[in-house]
Design a protein around this nucleic acid. Structure first.
Lengths: 198, 198
DNA sequence: GTCTATAACGTGATAGAC
DNA sequence: GTCTATCACGTTATAGAC
């Protein structure tokens, strides 16, 4: 999930890789084609060849990310619910370790009102992916007896998504909030403090 | 907490009021002096008179907001812990009802890496205010027996801040997530589903 | 597929008149 | 305290040569 996927030698992939870094570090409105062209040693127009409008780049970023997420989820088929939850929480750690990036859903939702139409559509699909994943984990956990909590699975899954997204953002200003929020989520799910391995 | 405070007739206050709307609707990088001058029927230069740099406007916005929040918190002195929690959760509803705004901490943390220095400093102070408030509510709730949950008060308070911030953002793309997250927070705090009045 | 060159525009910002 | 006028710059985007 951490490493981008396509051939790192072709320019299109290099653009996507760098754009993703900038996107999650600075927001979609926080980077320009100049940031990319300067860093890659190519010209502005070369990026426009691959992605005529910035909207096209944004859509490609979200679509590529959704495909990666689907593979990430699929790779967890063998794990139990507690293990799957740790993978979910791990995502946040990975972002944070990577120059304190935030998660895609955070950028997309905060900037939503300023995003081009097509990107808003992709964003909505992506958020649905995330929520579905959280619901599946929590339902499996409750059904298997590994997790126990009050309230519905859907509510708990919503808090899981929202809490992790918010914690990752707040960690930029108050780093301890990420670990604290994760600990609270584990506790509220009836899981041991350090995750299944501790 | 919803309504700005200073004299609505002088230009400086009008600028701040409108800028706050734009800030929480589109992010700090999502609005310009033109947005404000056009809407207020004044010129770009008039805003620069009151706030020479956009950084100055941002600092003024956060400082004013912190003062309002302090009064909002102080006004709850008579309430019990459950009542104070509802006031905390209510903030999110107010934002959402107001053109699906997000909370200041959300904007400040997501855009953090692109903000001018002075604004980053104010942002850090503001987040500390929020977290302190959440910790106080949760501690009082646990001490009085009104709330019961596993894990530390600090962890729970972190999840409270992070969860509400994330839920408010995600509600732009999936509106049910706000109510669901709030319900989950109440449930995890050992409170009745609809808040103290239901 | 990448380049040069350039257009059209928005943005933050300032000088100086009133 | 607000205005006109203007600036320098960054941004998205396109045409056309190589």
């Amino acid at each position: 999930m951490t490493t981008p996927t396509t051939n790192p030698d072709d320019t299109r992939s290099k653009i996507l890789d760098l754009a993703e870094l900038l996107w999650l570090g600075r927001g979609f409105n926080g980077f320009s084609y100049q940031h990319i062209s300067r860093e890659l040693g190519i010209k502005n127009a070369a990026i426009h060849y691959h992605f005529p409008h910035k909207e096209d780049l944004g859509v490609a970023l979200v679509q590529r990310y959704r495909r990666r997420l689907a593979r990430y989820i699929e790779a967890q088929t063998g794990l139990d619910a507690a293990g799957k939850l740790e993978r979910f929480l791990q995502l946040a750690d990975t972002y944070y370790a990577n120059d304190r990036q935030i998660c895609p859903s955070g950028s997309l939702s905060v900037e939503f009102h300023t995003l081009p139409d097509a990107l808003r559509g992709e964003a909505t699909l992506f958020i649905q992916d995330m929520v579905d994943w959280a619901v599946a984990i929590v339902k499996e956990g409750k059904a298997s007896g590994a997790m126990h909590f009050s309230g519905s699975e859907e509510d708990m899954a919503a808090l899981l998504c929202a809490g992790l997204q918010g914690a990752l953002q707040l960690a930029r200003l108050a780093p301890q909030l990420l670990e604290q929020s994760k600990a609270a989520l584990r506790a509220q799910l009836g899981l041991p403090p350090g995750g299944p391995v501790t």
